[in-house]
Design a binder for these strands. Sequence first.
DNA 1: CTGAAAGCGCTAACAA
DNA 2: TTGTTAGCGCTTTCAG
Lengths: 348, 348
Amino acid sequence: MSDPSFAPRPTLEAVAARAGVSRATASRVVNGSEGVRAPLVERVRQAVDELGYVPNQAARTLVTRRNDAIAVVVAEPETRFFTDPFFAQQVRGISKELTARDNQLVLLLTEGTADYERVGRYLAGGHVDGALIFSLHTDDSLPTLARRAGVPTVIGGRPGWTDSDSDHGTLYVDCDNRGGARDAVRHLLSIGRRTIAHIAGPLDQTASVDRLDGFRDVLPETDPALIAEGDFTPEGGASAMAELLRRRPDLDAVFAASDVMASGALRVLRTSGRRVPEDVAVVGFDDMVSVAEWTDPPLTTIRQDIEEMGRLMARLLLRAVAPSAGPQSVPALSSIVTPTQLVVRASA
Amino acid sequence: MSDPSFAPRPTLEAVAARAGVSRATASRVVNGSEGVRAPLVERVRQAVDELGYVPNQAARTLVTRRNDAIAVVVAEPETRFFTDPFFAQQVRGISKELTARDNQLVLLLTEGTADYERVGRYLAGGHVDGALIFSLHTDDSLPTLARRAGVPTVIGGRPGWTDSDSDHGTLYVDCDNRGGARDAVRHLLSIGRRTIAHIAGPLDQTASVDRLDGFRDVLPETDPALIAEGDFTPEGGASAMAELLRRRPDLDAVFAASDVMASGALRVLRTSGRRVPEDVAVVGFDDMVSVAEWTDPPLTTIRQDIEEMGRLMARLLLRAVAPSAGPQSVPALSSIVTPTQLVVRASA
DNA sequence: CTGAAAGCGCTAACAA
DNA sequence: TTGTTAGCGCTTTCAG
């Protein structure tokens, strides 16, 4: 394994020699340049095949200054990356888009801010052409860090900075959290519920805030006792539900800011003898199929197309990296907010 | 974002000039080489700081032939990578170990064998120093591909090839699936169960086969009707359970080859009016906390330390990549099988 | 249309 | 101990 007959990889030089052309011509063929006579192209191609030539990326990067690689930075002090299918799905979308455009995906996981320096160094080191950043908490310094490193960046989720801030032109992709939340609450109203509670996510994340805002858009007068903060885990959803039940035993509906929290809430509801949806209707958020379809009862929820969001992030970044797109107009890249959709199952 | 004042990164040359030394000396300081006089070291350090110098990795790789990057290849035609916390946890372990040793993690996701050619090219292109491969199905060609590319490789999980095959010296890390399965079944026996069923995983994966073998080690005479094949999803676990109930309504225990399948089984059991563990005792496998602790009732299961396995994989690979380890003895790297442990909760 | 030649930024002999 | 000198493999002007 360690010493596989040590055959040095063939170089462009070797290919050129074998094809009887200069290195320059060989290079042109390999890179699909125009203006090489057909017979030569053929000879070079053949040499490449026979030798099993694969270009050395380091050498290429050194001169072109392009890596064809982008970093995915996940800032997650907690273990969330690993319990939540959310990231995984997003990464999948990113991976698909990236490989379709012949780019590699370098994954940078951080375990707390101690790792930030390392990430900063890496980004500044020019290893990648751009970065996709997932930093969930509003005070996160990662985006700033990337900007300083001079690396084009797209953020997953709306950044927490206020618009007056230095976020000038920072690109992001997010779903319509606020609109989705409104739809959820309206659905609950439409099936006759009147005492609607909300289990929010951690309020230092914009997604949580936006969903809470959507809730309040529809129910501006809601009793504060009907709002509890969870942490996007089943446990958090469960204890928030318990708290709500204690404060307002008369509630007849709950809108949870995530399916995962909704599943915890469902458990507590069952334990406390409430029937779902008869006594208490429940709506989640995400449409995380592996969760929503398998709760008991299956969850009515707000769908966001997570994989698509990942794809969009990658596409946006790639465009930012290589400004040469259309004919000549510069379409001025902008952030993207994707639509959500109510999915009705049994819980509401 | 696209054009950030275009400040060209400083080169080693610039650092050397500023410190009034040669490029070679600057290089030595940057790479922590011994034998540079203290005052010079200091001057170079200062120049590095003032200029914000970061070494260009491409240039470095070109000459050292090291990338300080390893690829994690996940061969998963199905969507399993994204529904199963298993990989995620393993990736986390890998990431930790890698960053601790200043290596980067390049993630290569494949969506079916069409992508294999791309992966092969990438590996052969010398972008990475080694590869960690997760290929679940016994007929998978990825490991072969990596070997042909001449890239040191460690496989996650025991490969499916028989030993007579070309697997000579292929390294892998796996947990003691067979032993763990034996423990599960023995536990069931110890609490008085006599009609024990097994929900196996897909039998084209060695983990599934090994667990089934462990089951049979303890219960060699088991009625074949007591064994059903699932697919490591909750749905698969559910339908396997339904099938088992149909075939042997008298069963009083089930050992499922994964917690996720066990959760599906639990649902069916509840639906069919069986109490757990009173009527039917259930044991899972994995100790996927996010699953096992949150089923109703919480799952008794066999724990494997997934994150640790990831870490071990990375460590093993890194050692294979850089054979210069201890004094001079070559400890002959070998595969690793980690122990499992019975975790008793409420379901059995 | 093709080839010659000049580096990209860095490390590693080899000299001094 | 430090500096000088070759390249690593490739792309890209610039001539021819």
